[in-house]
């Protein structure tokens, strides 16, 4: 199984007497768009933090890009990209300064950064905005730029935490075009969203309830399994059963 990029085996995180993530086991394949869904407080963020090498599991095991989350966290960080709606780019740096900063952190040479960034900005239609402060860009452009910066160092996997929150419907769709493009280029996409229509764009979806994965399949199979018309209904049926309220 050389093309499995994320593999977890009973991955668990316990805070005191609270089991935030309860023995989750799943695989994600190379180039797959994997939707990671669940209600607020279901344990998504904790699980994602472990997969990104930011939090040490209390039990179980996971490998990300072939590295163990237990003792190879630094190698994992080099192999992944991350973007969320809340943290993406520095508003008071220009477009190019942001690219140079983030690419520099990942150890990419100046010369390469220069060449690749011009090509990237052309493709995004941001060729003229190279020296514009990111803070003055419209939100939609910022999000598209943030995604491109997150995959600038050609990571094996990119983690997207609610990347399209609050974005207008046209830009939201353009953003998904970028996701498909990245996936076609072999980058694995691990994405959370509150938009249930976006869940349909994923190859497979996992649904977390009370720290455990309660369903995992393609959108079509999940809908037939739960005899639901759309993903919204699947989500509602599963999440409603949650016993844990995030008090």
């Amino acid at each position: 199984m050389t093309d499995t990029v994320i593999q977890t085996e009973k991955l668990t995180k316990i805070f005191g007497s609270f089991t935030a993530v309860d023995a989750i086991t799943f695989d994600v394949k190379k180039g797959e768009i994997f939707g990671f869904l669940g209600a607020n407080g279901a344990g998504k963020t904790t699980a994602m933090r472990m997969l990104c090498g930011l939090s040490v599991p209390s039990g179980g095991e996971a490998t990300v890009a072939g590295f163990s989350v237990k003792n190879q966290a630094e190698q994992i960080k080099h192999s992944i990209g991350y973007m969320s709606q809340k943290f993406s780019l520095y508003e008071d740096l220009t477009v190019y300064e942001n690219i140079r900063f983030f690419a520099g952190i990942y150890g990419i040479e100046r010369k390469t950064i220069r060449a690749r960034s011009s090509e990237m900005l052309q493709r995004l239609g941001l060729g003229d905005q190279r020296n514009t402060l990111v803070g003055s860009l419209p939100l939609g452009w910022k999000q598209k730029l943030a995604f491109s910066v997150a995959i600038f160092h050609s990571p094996r996997i990119v983690f997207l935490d609610e990347p399209t929150g609050g974005v207008d419907p046209v830009t939201r769709r353009q953003f998904w075009d970028l996701i498909y493009e990245a996936s076609d280029n072999g980058i694995t996409v691990f994405v959370t969203t509150h938009y249930m229509d976006e869940a349909e764009y994923c190859n497979r979806i996992s649904m977390m309830v009370d720290g455990a994965i309660k369903a995992l399949d393609t959108p079509a199979n999940l809908k037939s399994q739960f005899q639901a018309n759309d993903m919204d209904e699947v989500f509602y049926r599963l999440a409603r059963r949650a016993k844990r309220k995030s008090y």
């Binding site: 669940g38 209600a39 607020n40 609610e162 929150g165 609050g166 509150h194 249930m196 919204d232 989500f235 509602y236 999440a239 409603r240 949650a242």
Partner: peptide, 10 residues
Amino acid sequence: TTGVDAVSRR
């Protein structure tokens, strides 16, 4: 309801 899951939104 921004950032709130589908069940809590309902």
